[in-house]
Simulated assay, not measured.
Amino acid sequence: MKYNLFKFLKLLAFTVFFWSFASTLFIVIRFFAYGEEQGSAYVNPKNIIPITEWLDFGLILGIIIGVFYAVVEFSFEKYFSQRLNLALSIFLKLVIYLSILIISLSFITFIAEERMDIDLANEPGWWRTDPLFWLSTTYFLLTSLVFSFIRIANDKLGSGVFIKMLLGKYRKPQEEKRILMFLDLKDSTAIAEQIGHQKYSQFIQDCFFDLNKILRRYDAEVYQYVGDEAVISWTYKNGIKNNRCIGLFYSFQETLSKRSKYYQKTYGLNPRFKAGLHGGQLMVAEVGTIKKEIAYHGDVINTTSRIQNECNTYNENLLISNTLLDDIDLNRIYTSKTLGAIQLKGKQEIIDISAIHLE
């Protein structure tokens, strides 16, 4: 509950800022482009009403749209994203946003008339033939596309990575200290044979949908999905803070457990996952030209994968390298159990690992 409130407030702050800026920018553009159009939309030439007056209303309009936008986006993401296809979701949002724009502009023009003693179009049905409304609608629809692009890019690349790509940070490989988790479905081959490949695909989709619900709560990013495996990443500092890299795994287990009735009814089984954790220095680079993405290179990746593979050997759900564990201050709800050393495939290097248990 607290996390959902925090998530909504974060989205609200972003949408209000974004739409306040977009609205005031529109006011500035219209003010200086008034010219010969002064008789069509407003009865007063622009030099009678100072721009500061209009900017106040632009800011109010931006706040109103931003609040409604946050409510709609949050509601669709939380309750409808898995039920509606993309085309229907876009259409419904378009209808809602158009309605919000009509109501918001009618409200603003009514207040502006009273405050500035001018005559503005706001009678019932005014928007059908008003050229300024359709100009505003076109502007806000284009701005909505920019807003959606930023959100999609952020979801695709991870929070903050999109801006770094725009600035060209990863065009030259950069060294970063990160934590990786290889999260893999247990008994995947047997499950695929049991329920068939079509249902299995839906099964994996449901599991990762549940995973995505909690990622932001633990400040985690998905590096990539590989079949029934997800590779999750943190900056080193964020990953060890409040045991986030460990807490994510057990929170995911709890989420799956709460939906056990759904999984049993739909697939006749409950999903179980295993994971390996490791951290250290690796290289981060922007790769590809047709389909650009951020890639990680270094021994940390191979080592983490190797640790995860040992889960079956030791019959454990979560294994971690001792080098990473030494930097984590385990709270009272977790305990660790040293298992010994493993040799990395193709190397002479030995690494000590431990199992993490929930009290």
Rank of each mutant, 00 (worst) to 15 (best):
L12S: 09
R128H: 15
P50N: 05
L167F: 02
E316C: 11
F8Q: 02
P124V: 02
K261H: 01
Y34G: 15
D228P: 00
A121H: 05
W19S: 04
L325W: 03
Y42P: 03
N312C: 12
T15E: 12
Y250G: 08
L180M: 07
V95F: 08
I240R: 03
F14Q: 13
I64C: 13
V28K: 02
R128Q: 12
G276P: 11
N122W: 10
D329C: 04
Q224G: 08
Q38L: 13
T313H: 03
F133C: 06
T137K: 01
D228S: 00
N309H: 08
F6D: 14
A13P: 02
F133E: 12
I63D: 08
L98H: 03
N47H: 06
R30Q: 11
S75H: 07
F6W: 08
G239W: 04
S20D: 06
V161T: 14
T255G: 05
F80I: 12
I60C: 09
P131S: 08
I51N: 06
F182T: 06
F107L: 14
G160D: 10
D187K: 04
D119T: 11
V95K: 01
I328G: 11
P50H: 00
A230R: 00
L94A: 14
V161H: 10
G340N: 03
A295T: 14
S159P: 09
I204L: 15
N243A: 05
V28M: 02
R332G: 12
P124L: 07
G346C: 06
F147W: 14
L86H: 13
L318F: 05
D155L: 08
L185S: 07
W126H: 01
I152W: 12
L358V: 08
L5S: 14
N212I: 02
F107P: 00
A275D: 10
L59T: 02
H197W: 08
I246N: 10
I102M: 06
N309C: 04
F182E: 09
N302L: 01
T335P: 05
G158Q: 11
N242A: 05
G288Y: 01
L105G: 07
Y200S: 00
P173C: 09
S354F: 06
D327V: 03
A341E: 15
E286C: 06
K199G: 01
F57M: 06
A355E: 09
L256F: 07
G276Y: 05
A295K: 07
L142D: 07
G39T: 07
V72Y: 09
F8T: 07
I51W: 00
Y334N: 01
T266R: 07
F31Y: 15
S23E: 06
S75Q: 04
T109E: 13
P131D: 01
